[in-house]
């Protein structure tokens, strides 16, 4: 980027996702989408793609769309293929002199539409090398259908399909490490970010993803006050705690080179992130200390491994 990042200047740009959409107050998704779209150069056009999701049903309810750019939604599991289809059309029509100018192609899908049902479509589109950006706004469960577990839901989290009861203590399995799976696709750019602080990390990575030729993938943590069960005004705090506990490390892999984007001044214990959230409440009951210890152990291991990969 030519200019130094300045949040005030960025938010003064005309929005490409307008207000009036129907996302919940305090939802991370709207902040993530606005943040990514702000990274487009103002003069460039874009086609935005959505998987079926909270985001889709809240931003394009007939006859109103919140997007200033062209937009397409087709189904839940095919947003990557859909984006690749638009890109294919652009290539064909450009070759035949029927379209001109720069058009960028950006997909947004939740973790259900990315880690699970849209996984094949995503992997295929990345392997084929379309010039597109796939953004997963990761809120760690199927929120649109009412908070069911996905393969992104973290260990022990309570959801409506991993409830807590006398014989169940939330999700039994680990969260899938999708970002690393995307790294294994050997695509030009993969990054993990979050709507943190002044959004500089989110903005920089989005701009890089949009303006790097070829398939790029962004995994963006997107807290959900309904599903995570925390006060809706605390989006920024929850995001910061996810990053400062190293539950959600910020890093990027550019042409195979791993780079850590943020090292917390003081790495906080995972309880700090988990305590404010109802989905982890059962872990703080007497006798369940082992659960927090287990999560801490895993977070530490993954952080160490990431430090090694990034040479930090």
């Amino acid at each position: 980027m030519s200019k130094i990042y300045n949040l005030k200047r960025e938010v003064e740009k005309p929005p490409r996702l307008t207000g009036g959409h129907r996302l919940c107050a305090g939802c991370g998704a709207g902040v993530v989408v606005s943040g990514v779209l702000r990274a487009l150069n103002q003069e460039d056009r874009a086609v935005v793609v959505n998987a079926t999701s909270c985001l889709e049903v809240s931003t394009f309810m007939y006859p109103y769309t919140a997007y200033m750019d062209s937009f397409i939604h087709s189904a839940f599991e095919n947003s990557a293929a859909t984006c690749s289809g638009v890109e294919a059309a652009y290539n064909a029509l450009k070759r035949r002199g029927k379209v001109d100018g720069t058009v960028k192609f950006i997909t947004f899908a939740g973790d259900g539409g990315t880690y699970d049902i849209g996984f094949q479509s995503l992997s295929g589109a990345m392997e084929r090398g379309h010039d597109m950006v796939y953004v997963c706004y990761d809120n760690e469960a199927y929120m649109n259908t009412g908070i069911q577990r996905s393969s992104s839901t973290p260990l022990f989290a309570r959801t409506t399909t991993t409830p807590v009861g006398s014989a169940g203590q939330g999700k039994k399995q680990n969260k899938k490490d999708l970002t690393e799976i995307l790294v294994a696709h050997n695509i030009p750019y993969v990054a993990q970010t979050a709507p943190l602080g002044n959004f500089k990390d989110l903005h920089t990575k989005s701009h890089k993803a949009i303006y790097t030729e070829g398939p790029c993938f962004l995994n963006i943590l997107s807290p959900c006050p309904r599903g995570w069960d925390y006060p809706m005004a605390q989006l920024a705090q929850i995001t910061k705690l996810a990053v400062d506990t190293c539950v959600w490390p910020l890093y990027e892999v550019e042409e195979g080179i791993w780079r850590l984007s943020y090292i917390p001044k003081k790495k906080l214990p995972v309880e700090e992130f988990m305590r404010p959230q109802g989905r982890f409440r059962h872990m703080f009951q007497k006798g369940n200390e082992w659960m927090i210890e287990e999560v801490q152990k895993q977070v530490d291991q993954r952080w160490e491994s990431l430090l090694e990969k990034t040479g930090a």
Binding site: T82, G85, V86
Partner: peptide, 25 residues
Amino acid sequence: NTEFVTVESEHSSMSVCIAAQAAGA
């Protein structure tokens, strides 16, 4: 000079066709 998209499934084949046709192709 067709853009020949060798997808990973028929599901993606139709998804590509839908998106590309909507895009004007």
